Simulated assay, not measured.
Amino acid sequence: MKRLLGWLGRSQAAEVTEAQQARLDALPTPMAPDQRPLQEQRLVVLDLETTGLNTNRDHVLSIGAWVIEDGCIDLGTRYESTLQGDHKVSESILIHGLAPSTIAAGLEPAEALLDFLDFLGDSPVIGYHAPFDQRMLARSLKSNLGYELRHRFFDLAEVAPMLCPQARIYKGGLDAWVEYFSLEVLERHSASADALVTAELALILFSKARQQGINSLAALDEQLGSWRRRQTAHSL
């Protein structure tokens, strides 16, 4: 039996089976930033590949995620899936190396997203240009499962220039920071590979944060708020 969940009051609805709803009901409440040391946090580093950059129209193609726990990347724990779809071939799909046959053979979107939510648990999320991934993921979760994403996202595209102003990389992409910190990258442009690079950058930045007396996610969140206000004031 399937249940219909209304989506933001619109006529669209997500069809959710009883088994899927049970999995949704069992999910933990997302964790807010707290005062625990960064080394004690479980964080999920996320990257999405999408059909394009329009958060209202484009679709999630694949999800890649790694876990940072006890101050290290857990190389034995990752999430990676391609979401099934009939998307037309586009430049974005070609860049990601995802053939139409691969996408057609992917996991059913609701099941892939549920698997990711199980992997995510209550952990905060780290990403590069994280607001884009956050909006794309939230839309996909809402349309496929009727689920409202409430997890806290931290954007390394903000954290890096805040902690390393001497780099003078103000609006650079991930590659700019990879080059700045001389990170060795064996693979790029898949969700899992990009998430792993982002995780490596996160560990470097957390070390920089601790050197500056920022020892917890709550402190990092507070510093980011102050940094954003200064950036807004300077732009006026």
Rank of each mutant, 00 (worst) to 15 (best):
L163T: 08
L186S: 14
C72A: 15
I68W: 02
L156P: 02
K171F: 06
A130N: 13
A65M: 07
H151T: 01
A130V: 11
A138K: 07
S190K: 15
H189A: 04
I68N: 02
A99T: 14
E111Y: 13
Y79H: 14
L183Q: 13
C164G: 03
P124G: 10
T77V: 02
G71I: 11
P131N: 05
S62W: 11
H96K: 07
S81V: 15
Q134I: 01
E148V: 10
F132R: 12
S182L: 02
F132P: 04
V178C: 00
C72G: 02
L137K: 12
G121K: 01
Y147L: 08
E91M: 11
A160L: 07
F153R: 06
L61E: 04
G97K: 11
T102H: 13
G71A: 10
T82C: 11
G127E: 12
G64Y: 03
L137A: 04
L83G: 03
G97N: 09
D122C: 09
G121H: 02
E111V: 14
L186Y: 12
H87W: 14
W66D: 06
E69C: 03
R152A: 02
V125C: 10
G173M: 02
C72L: 14
F119Q: 01
Y180F: 11
E187C: 09
A112Q: 08
F154A: 03
K171L: 04
G146F: 07
D74N: 12
S190Q: 15
A157S: 15
D74G: 01
L141R: 01
L174Y: 03
D74M: 03
S81R: 09
Y180E: 01
I93G: 05
V89K: 12
P109Q: 12
W177C: 00
S182I: 00
L98I: 13
L145P: 12
G106T: 11
E111P: 12
L120K: 01
G172M: 09
P124D: 11
A167H: 08
F119P: 00
F154W: 07
K171Y: 09
A112W: 07
V125E: 09
I63H: 14
L117H: 07
G146N: 11
Q84Y: 07
D115S: 11
E179K: 06
S190T: 15
F132A: 08
E158C: 06
L94F: 01
Y128T: 03
E179Y: 01
I73M: 05
P124L: 08
L149W: 01
L107K: 14
V185A: 03
E80D: 15
S140Y: 03
S190P: 13
L94R: 14
T77E: 12
K142S: 13
